[in-house]
Amino acid sequence: MTEMSKIDTRALLADVTEFIWAEGAMLDAKEYDAWLELWTEDGLYIMPMGAGDDYKNQLNLCYDNAKMRRDRIGRFQRGFSISSAPPAETVRTLSRFRIEAAEGDLITVSCAEHLVEDKFGRQRIWAGNALYTLKVTDGGFKLHGKIVRLLNSDGMLNSFSYLF
């Protein structure tokens, strides 16, 4: 691992923040085709439940590889899913960014996510901790991992017609 002291963290923080804000804006605008393009082919999008981190061997809210991501987006877009036609509208903010690690071409960033959804004029608010793994490529960052752990993730929730 590169020693954190040798990285220009202030510049890096600005770069990852810009990328993650752009990703958040994409999800609020439901620009899902562009969102799919952000990913590495072997990246995983996971929303776990509870405190566990053995994602493969535990029940998650979602555990999406590339195929599941494409299927999920296809479900949102084709118009046959009543919960996503129309979907809830969302506005999210991401903040409290912290670079957790930088190893080779992978950067791990944690942040807080607050999201408000609106459907049928009813607004619900959600909060979670997000952990991004970004891959440095010639074309800029790629999403290689994204883990969003909601507050009360293993408690009573509602169904979601959008992505965190």
């Binding site: 929303m47 029940l59 998650n60 809210l61 479900r75 899913s81 919960s83 169904s159």
Partner: peptide, 19 residues
């Protein structure tokens, strides 16, 4: 587990439409 996540729960491909 993956089959369950596929259909069930708040992020499943089935339960949100049921709800």
């Amino acid at each position: 587990l993956r089959l369950h996540e596929h259909f069930q729960g708040p992020m499943g491909f089935g339960s949100p439409d049921d709800a």
